[in-house]
Design a protein around this nucleic acid. Sequence first.
DNA 1: TACCATCTGTTAAAATATTAACAGGGCAAA
DNA 2: TTTGCCCTGTTAATATTTTAACAGATGGTA
Lengths: 223, 223
Amino acid sequence: MVKETQNLIKGLPHKTIERLSQYRRALLICLEKGKEYIFSHEIAEIQHITSVQVRRDLMLIGYSGTLRKGYNIKELINLIGNIIDSPGGINVAIIGMGNLGRAVSKYLTHKRQKLTIVAGFDINSKKIGNEILGIPCYAPDEMKQIVEEKKIGIAIITVPATKIPETTKRLINAGIRGVLNFTPTPVVVPDNIFLEEYDMITSLEKVAFFVKQAMIEEEENRM
Amino acid sequence: MVKETQNLIKGLPHKTIERLSQYRRALLICLEKGKEYIFSHEIAEIQHITSVQVRRDLMLIGYSGTLRKGYNIKELINLIGNIIDSPGGINVAIIGMGNLGRAVSKYLTHKRQKLTIVAGFDINSKKIGNEILGIPCYAPDEMKQIVEEKKIGIAIITVPATKIPETTKRLINAGIRGVLNFTPTPVVVPDNIFLEEYDMITSLEKVAFFVKQAMIEEEENRM
DNA sequence: TACCATCTGTTAAAATATTAACAGGGCAAA
DNA sequence: TTTGCCCTGTTAATATTTTAACAGATGGTA
């Protein structure tokens, strides 16, 4: 990629990055259906956002569509790939092969060419040394070695809360570059490691809050 | 709750709601440890945010701490509960008891007193009529009846992409109030139903992007 | 050819969200 | 008791994100 493009990408807002990932997801489905071009308002509708936002995001990454035809789906997929994906791909490990870990593994396996789950870690001795869902499973104290050997860049944490401090220490020590934490316990990493945290309880409680509010408003209107 | 408080809550920013949920989560852990009071900077550190933001959020919900002692943990937990929780609780259904559905069920069961998973739905006849992880499982065409009977307010969607349109139609028909969609396929609901969508691929790709950027920057600095 | 409808691309404005700055107050140590 | 430190609460400033507004361009149509 030319340097100019790299400079564009550098300042991309976080929100735009997230949406680009979502656009690609939608575009891949469209491509499969045999669609060749797509309008900004079509993408917008799928994502529950406005077409202006779509056009603006695409402007930010320097992509131009064809007037009255829209955007070339294949081209756009490739461009988003150039932005998000690393050319050689990034290997991923799942830390904790419990229920959540396995669900995540199954969900993510073969979804993206440039992101490969290459290892799982667990303390359960029945799992260590075996494959789970096609993913070889290792003991926590092998982490540094395996991360280096398999060139693992990203770890997805799905262990119980009590194991978080130990797990984090091991990951930092192993030289991981990015962490996605699905645990309700916030993780502490040095700031050269990119950290993303997600807790489904927060999402659920957010829904609960707005459902409650809607009910209160209905109540008020009835009076 | 007095009307004044309700007016405060009404205009609460989405982000504040999310953080309140996270504060409570952290506070519950502190309470368990026997801690009585907590400073804004302590909460901030746990959540990787600034203490100003914590104080600002608490200001927005009208809570005052004690100078030099901080916030009373028990009080704050109760207040956040008053805001987020519905007094009688809200019942939740999991739509799709596959891997992800079961992981979500296990993860959420007994986590919050006011959110109870009371039903699962699946097309698999082996699951229908049985309990999975203690959750009774029903056929999709029983949805309307069960939602009404069990007073289910929120549905968590974890079905395969192909089943999304049908599932959504059933949920709308059943009179659901809020939807949390863990599927990569965006769903369409009328806007009297609150919708929250989360796709872990987006999170993972976000991490991948920033890891890539960090590596490019290192490369540049080396030259 | 002239007009109209409908796209894109971009700048400007508005709305949200975060951070800075600081006043006010209480406790502790000198 | 006075000084200094370290809290909270709040307003003001900044940064980020979204939305509005509109210029420009293309193709269909009368």
